[in-house]
Every structure is written in C-alpha cells, then in structure tokens.
Design a protein around this nucleic acid. Structure first.
Lengths: 166, 166
DNA sequence: GCAACTATCTCGCTGATCGAGAGAATAGTG
DNA sequence: CACTATTCTCTCGATCAGCGAGATAGTTGC
C-alpha cells in the first residue's frame, strides 16, 4: 500500500464502475424481457430520436456490430415488444425507418431517468471546479481506451505469444 | 448553452466510457476466440488468483449469474482453450478447483497490461489533488449506481421476493 | 447403513447471431 | 425505355451460449 497504488485504485474504480453499470443495465434488461443487445439498441434509438436522426436497420446493425440477419431479428424483437415501429421511407422505398414508440421513451425514462437523476443529484455535491476536473479526467481516460482499441486492431497479429500451450 | 448542461455531459461521458471499455473487451475477446462471458470469467479468475482465493465452478457461475449448466459449458470452453485446468479438491471431492494456467496470465497481461499502462501514464498528467477529486467523483458515482441497482431489485421483487434463484 | 444435502455434470431445448443469398427498390448508362 | 450495378432489408439454415430438469458422485448426520 504505497503512494504508487493510488492511480491503480483509480483503474480499479473505473473497472468497478463499468461493471456496476453493466450489471445495472443487464438487470434492467432481464426485468423487462430484453436482452443486453436490445437494451443497447434502445439506447441508441433513443439517442438518435432525441437528436432528430433517422435510424434504419442498417445503421442500427452497424452501430451494434450485428450483421443483417441479426439486425432483422433484433428489430423484430423490439417491434414485437411494442418499442419501435417499422415504416418504409417514402423517399427511398428500399429503406425502413425505425420509429420509437411512446412505450420505449417511457421505458427509458422510467429507468435511466431515475438513475440519471440520482447521478445529477450526487454531482451537486461537487463544486464546478471539481466537476471540471472530473470531466477532464473522464475525457482523458476515454481517449486512452479509444486509442488502445485502435492500436489493438492494428496489432492484431502482434504480441500474441499464447501458442503451443496445452 | 446553460450551466445546467455540464453535469449532463458528465453523465454521457460516463456512459461513453463504459461503452468504450465494453467494446475494447469485446474486440479483444473475439480476437482471441473468447466470448464476452469468457472474458468476464477470466477477469474474475485472475483477480481471485492474485488474491489467493480458490475458485470453483459454483462460485464462478454465481459471480457471473450463470446456472450450473451454463457454468459447466463455460469451464469446458476455458479448459479447451488451455486457460484453466480442473482439479478435484482433495478435501471435499465433490468440489472442483479451477486453476489458472500460465497462458491465461499472459492473455490477461496482454489485454490489461497494455491498457492499464496507458491509463496510468495518462494519469500522470494529473496532479495528486486532481486525482483525489477524480477518485472521490468515481466513488460517488459508483455508489449511486450500486444503490440504484438495489432499489431497482426491491421494487421489481414486489410481493414475491423469491430469493435464492440466481 | 440410510437419508438428506451439496457440488458438478449431462441432456434436451430455446433463442440470439451468423453466413449466404433472395427480393425489392433505386441510380446510372445507352 | 430496357439493362445492369448497387443498396437496403429480409429469409433460410446452421451454430452455439445459456436455461431447466434431472443424474451422478461425494459428504454429513442419525
């Protein structure tokens, strides 16, 4: 337990936080008959809806790294649950627009809304300078992860010694 | 636009960070022929190994919210990949100890080692006071999520708690 | 020794996702 | 106007992670 450990505790805190958020999402999902993928899709759809963007199955599948078949299945599930609705794009009739139903908004609101409210309330206990520091910190960490993600892709054939073990 | 938006950006940053970390893990997993669940299991096993704790299929399945059949399948996969080894507990021969192989350590190192190093390096750009603030912030946010998780459970449990069926 | 309990594994099944390709609409070319 | 290439989405069949129920082997108490 030396001073060098402090940053390491932050690393574990970050990991712990993501685990908690994942669990939170997973529990919410299963409680509502959703799969983790469905929840990710719902978040994406609500974000896009709020931003006024049109989402098609193609875009959604791309965002979630699903192929077309998987995307169709996902959209089927969400539609069956009454969370979204398919509608052909009148401009380009090959496309299908995914429209978010009221129920999806309520679902997202009723659950994430509560969490976000709690998070915001907790943030009020920090002064603006501290929040600015936290933000800078989070942005820096996010940047590192994003960069590592791309490095990893490029090095995909690199430092993978794990061979010949059995 | 307004100052009220600043905390909201922090909320989105938190979410964005978890998404990035998830993607990082998912990409690493698929690159190594692992499933997301396998990676979570690996993390759990490595943590326990470092802490000197004995992990059994039962404990592992409990930690990952898998039932016994799913756990057996998971352990089969990890064993087939040469990441762990089964060994009967000589004290209580009903039990199976899961022993982490060298290869799993290397894999974990190749995965986290690089990322953690990068995160620590980035943290050096913050002074101790800032890191302390970041830590306080992360702890506060984690606490909120954890609390919300339990609240959600209790609300959903309702009239029939039916605990013990995890 | 018998009964109750515990830890793990086996079996059959559901369902999310994949690869391949079909169907339908658009855009470009002559 | 056909004719072809392109772009979206959906369908079909297969794969495999995870579930529920029950089997198997080991432990503990009477």
């Amino acid at each position: 337990m030396s001073e060098v450990e402090e940053p390491m505790r932050l690393v574990h805190l970050l990991r712990g936080l993501t685990v908690e958020l994942d669990l939170f999402g997973a529990e919410f999902a299963s409680r509502n008959g959703l799969h983790p993928t469905d929840l990710r899709a719902l978040i994406h759809l609500l974000d896009a809806s709020r931003a006024g963007e049109v989402v098609t199955p193609g875009r959604l599948g791309e965002a979630l790294h699903l192929n077309s078949a998987g995307t169709t299945g996902l959209v089927d599930r969400l539609e069956r649950l009454g969370l979204i609705r398919r509608e052909r794009d009148p401009q380009d009739r090959r496309r299908v627009r995914l429209l978010v139903e009221e129920r999806a908004m309520e679902l997202g609101q009723g659950f994430f809304g509560g969490l976000i409210g709690d998070l915001l309330a907790e943030m009020r206990r920090f002064d603006p300078a501290e929040l600015a520091t936290a933000r800078r910190f989070l942005e820096a960490m996010t940047g590192v992860v994003t960069a590592a993600r791309q490095d990893g892709r490029e090095e995909a054939a690199g430092p993978t010694p794990a061979r010949g073990s059995s």
